[in-house]
Design a protein around this nucleic acid. Structure first.
Ligand SMILES: [Mn+2]
Ligand SMILES: [Mn+2]
Length: 298
DNA sequence: GACGCTG
DNA sequence: CAGCGTCAACGCTGC
DNA sequence: GCAGCG
């Protein structure tokens, strides 16, 4: 395959023509190429964090599965970190460089989910996330709730960052400056208080009800992602959905436009958008991590 | 996708 | 040797 | 402990 000369010798690709998005005609080669091209933009949000991959070795038309643990067939250049779980430990996968990204893509990894804490400090989140989940199909409700949340942040001198999830919703992230200050229980309680303000502001379109049967047509503000060893879809990850949508960082103006939806940008349309705009998340540095900070040589 | 078992 | 089965997560909430 | 949820 064309990319081979640019990628470390020990990364080989198998079945490059296998259809991973059968309804869209995108192959494993398309997915690997996407991740190779997006690596510089995406890696700052992955480096040093426990990564959960969602793999679809037989394409998104068949069952997929989550994988959090490293396996012994992984090459040496994939760093790992042992992290305690509720009743055991896991050997977490780290994705610090492009080689790891494409090696995992070759194993059928389509989605990359990133922890909200650095692997070295798994009890201390460096960001808060508000996961705005659609109950009905009206994306405008998601946008209104996001705006209400943004307004609360602005009143409190906080700068929130927004991304489309690639599915039907939006994620709003707030970087945490002093990560030693809180564990997940503390941060989640804080997130819930903020979310309650938003629900009070617009009770007809927003709810904190986890149970689907209690949500009505309201947007579910999910603060449960702010939990130990929990993850959120990483910026610039593909989603295993029709059209190969991308979880895309947005400027707020774009996020609330009529033309925007949760899956506005796709594998085959994202790069045009990137060439037309500055990185809307360039100031999102809850925990600045530089290339090379993890002792990699290539 | 990788591996082990079975025929 | 081919084919088949099995495996590949985790944590919070509210009964 | 378990179902529901993401
Ligand atoms: Mn969501
Ligand atoms: Mn298979």
């Amino acid at each position: 395959m064309k990319l081979a000369e640019q990628i470390p010798e020990d990364v080989e690709f198998t079945n490059p023509r296998k259809l991973l998005f059968p309804r869209d005609g995108f192959t494993k080669s398309d997915v690997i190429s996407y991740y190779w091209r997006i690596a510089d933009r995406m890696l700052p949000y992955l480096r040093g964090r426990a990564i959960t991959v969602r793999r679809f070795p037989d394409g998104i038309g068949e069952d997929g599965f989550f994988q959090k643990n490293a396996t012994d067939d992984m090459p040496d250049f994939i760093q790992t970190k042992e992290i305690a779980t509720a009743d055991d430990t896991m050997q977490a996968i780290l994705v610090n460089e492009a080689a790891e990204l494409v090696w995992l893509a070759n194993k059928g990894a389509i989605e990359f989910h990133a922890a909200l804490a650095m692997a070295e400090t798994p009890n201390h989140p460096d960001q808060i996330i508000f996961d705005l989940d659609a109950t009905s199909d009206e994306f405008s409700k998601i946008q209104q709730v996001a705006e209400a949340l943004r307004a609360w942040c602005t009143e409190n001198d906080i700068r929130p960052f927004v991304k489309s999830t690639g599915s039907r919703g939006l994620h709003v992230h707030i970087p945490i400056k002093d990560i030693q200050n809180g564990d997940f229980d503390t941060i989640r309680a804080c997130a819930k208080r903020i979310a309650q303000h938003v629900v009070d502001e617009c009770p007809d379109i927003a709810t904190l009800e986890q149970r689907k049967e209690n949500r009505g047509d309201r947007v579910y503000i999910d603060v449960q992602r702010n939990g130990y060893n929990q993850t959120a879809i990483a910026p610039y990850s593909l989603r295993a959905r029709k059209g190969a949508p991308v979880a895309t960082p947005l400027d707020w103006e774009r996020a609330v436009q009529l033309e925007t939806s949760g899956n506005r940008y796709k594998l085959n349309t994202l790069f045009k958008r990137l060439s037309q705009t500055e990185d809307p998340w360039k100031d999102f540095v809850p925990h600045a991590v530089q290339r090379g900070a993890f002792g990699l040589t290539f």
